[in-house]
Design a protein around this nucleic acid. Structure first.
Lengths: 352, 352
DNA sequence: CCGCTTCGTCGAAACGCTTCGACGAAGTTC
DNA sequence: GAACTTCGTCGAAGCGTTTCGACGAAGCGG
């Protein structure tokens, strides 16, 4: 393995000159540059990452910290990762995926203190997330995918849940639906302070109320069985429901199965909208799901771009951005079969 | 950030003594060790990863090289990753996920030559995979998940496709099925030399022939639409089919949808078995899929363990292991409704 | 044409660790 | 008890870069 010394000797220049050619830190004449470049090519020289990292105090490695619990990554999270990896590569960084969950803060502290990571993107952020504190204390530059409760000092990229829910509800209401049930993540997830679950809950309440409709929300475990149970609960609470809105890529298949099992057809009897869903997953269902398509890879890409800009440029502070999900109408939504039969919700604010 | 010098000064020992306490390379008396440990704790000392890497010429970073094309990771690949990450963490290594596809061999060569990776696990291996050559030339220790054509010099962990297919076919034949169609990956994937697709094709042919049955294989694109098309093609080639075997987590949902669309019920009219599938995905379908459950995270774990053993221990050569998929019977398989009506295949070797 | 920048290059000192050789002190062997 | 080991520790030499200060050689204003 050739080193800088070898290159310098072959090109008949000093080691530092080779370094300047490589990094562009100081001007080098074209003639010298060419000699050095030729020597590098001839020796098939690659700079040693560790030495470079030690001397420059920058590893050019970025961390993507993700929970990776039991079930692994859904299509949406996967899209974050691929987007982030691509953007990191473009910016000349490597991307380390670290399965640092919420539990092992000590592992995280160790990782952060080892100076191996120039910066970090944090996924699946809770409203109160200790990992943020740990990383800030360790002085590691940080961008969130998601948001904590107080975002005043942080950079983040997140989905615009408010607008996403509003659009989804508007789509259904526009088709004539009045009894719409929202299937959220599990009660435990809500209780743990998981932002998306809480924000969509509030947004749904606001959107429905805005249309003069009663918001009904059901919490569902992230599984097909959870979806089935949730649908049963939904019918118990709102027997005349004609539409289901869900943000639970896994549960939604249980919902569809249970619907079929009850002899109800989608979308004729019940319309279904899946929020924050990838097209690939939406197409898996029969009929294909009308969905609010998550900005997936864009989120990862933007997070990395914000991070690298902060690291490379000097003072680029606080990138805060919300990305909407795009409504993609497929086969799972239609006008309700029997609009006339629907009893209006308790708040009938028609005619003022 | 405290350095080793700080620790040494505080503990009143030399720097090398601190290093020996840390690495255990040489014996250190209990008394000295305690002094050093106390100093470390007091200063909240963490060794600098770059300096350590430079001096020891080992980064303690492992690479997991995966294609990460358009569609991202399925549940099965995700399981590889989580298994690998966990095992790496246990062995005291970090795991870098690199989206180095088949195309950019130069990127791979650069990555390998930077001496940033102590070793590498290669996923989605083709029968003839240039990445293997590149890594071997760069002298990077290597373990495959999957197999190349010639495995004589390589370490690998792979699924035992032969046994998996044999078991799946046996399950269906045991239920009384005679006309079984195998839905494989796409023709392009087969042509590219993707091991699993080729091996299952051959194993299916062997298994069916062994039962005196005619093997019918259809290639399907990895999408719901591909599954639909494949089922149509299957019925065209074998109108009396009573069972579908598939190794295509995405297409299988299209197959189920198309079956329903044709008014055929699963499993009464057609049984469906999904091979190399995670339980989570199998449960998403209605009815839940009888599947050959992929050893998922075990594959990733074993690959990393083999790699770290090779790196840490001196001469532990060539770990080669095949893991079977386990049959898990769910709701998508049953005895065929009308066994009697089935025309026997061309080779009716009953009664010999 | 004298003093001043700017340009292009060099040598050497870090960066924070591992590892090698050395060396007293203590323990073993015959 | 002389000759060896082994144990525990130290000092110093790297590991392969980056980066800082220095220094001739040009270029330039007055």
């Amino acid at each position: 393995m050739a080193t800088m010394h070898d290159v310098a000797r072959l090109a008949q220049v000093s080691v530092s000159t080779v370094s300047y050619v490589l990094t562009g830190t100081r001007p080098i004449s074209q003639a010298t540059r060419n000699k050095v470049l030729a020597a590098m090519a001839q020796l098939d020289y690659q700079p040693n990452a560790m030495a470079r990292g030690l001397a420059s105090r920058r590893s050019r490695i970025l961390g993507l910290l993700m929970p990776m619990d039991e079930r692994g990554l859904g299509a949406t999270e996967t899209a974050f990762v691929t987007g982030a990896a691509a953007a990191a590569s473009v910016a000349g960084y490597h991307l380390v995926l670290s399965p640092v969950g919420g539990g092992n803060l000590d592992d995280l502290r160790r990782l952060a203190s080892q100076r191996m990571l120039d910066g970090v993107v944090l996924m699946e952020v809770q409203l109160a997330d200790e990992r943020v504190t740990v990383l800030q204390e360790a002085g590691v530059p940080l961008v969130l995918i998601g948001r904590t409760g107080d975002t005043s000092t942080l950079s983040y990229v997140d989905i615009d849940f408010d607008q996403t829910v509003r659009e989804a509800v508007a789509h259904l209401v526009g088709l004539g639906h009045r009894r719409i049930v929202y299937v959220n993540h599990s009660a435990a997830t809500l209780a743990s302070g998981y932002g998306p679950a809480l924000r969509t809950r509030d947004a749904f309440t606001a959107a429905m109320t805005g249309h003069g409709l009663e918001p009904v929300m059901i919490a569902a475990e992230d599984s097909a069985a959870g979806g089935r149970a949730a649908l049963a609960a939904a019918f118990a609470q709102a027997p005349e429901l004609t539409a289901v809105l869900a943000m639970n890529e896994t549960a939604i298949f249980g919902i569809l199965g249970e619907l079929t099992g009850r002899g109800l057809s989608v979308p004729d009897d019940v319309s279904v909208v899946s929020m924050v869903t990838s097209p690939q997953v939406a197409e898996l269902a029969t009929p294909a799901l009308t969905a609010m398509t998550s900005p997936g890879s864009a989120l990862g890409r933007i997070a990395i771009e914000a991070l690298t800009r902060h690291l490379d440029g000097p003072a680029d502070h606080r990138h805060q951005q919300l990305l909407p999900c795009a409504l993609e109408v497929r086969g799972s939504t239609a006008a309700p079969r029997r609009t006339a039969l629907i009893t209006p919700g308790p708040s009938s604010n028609d005619g003022g």
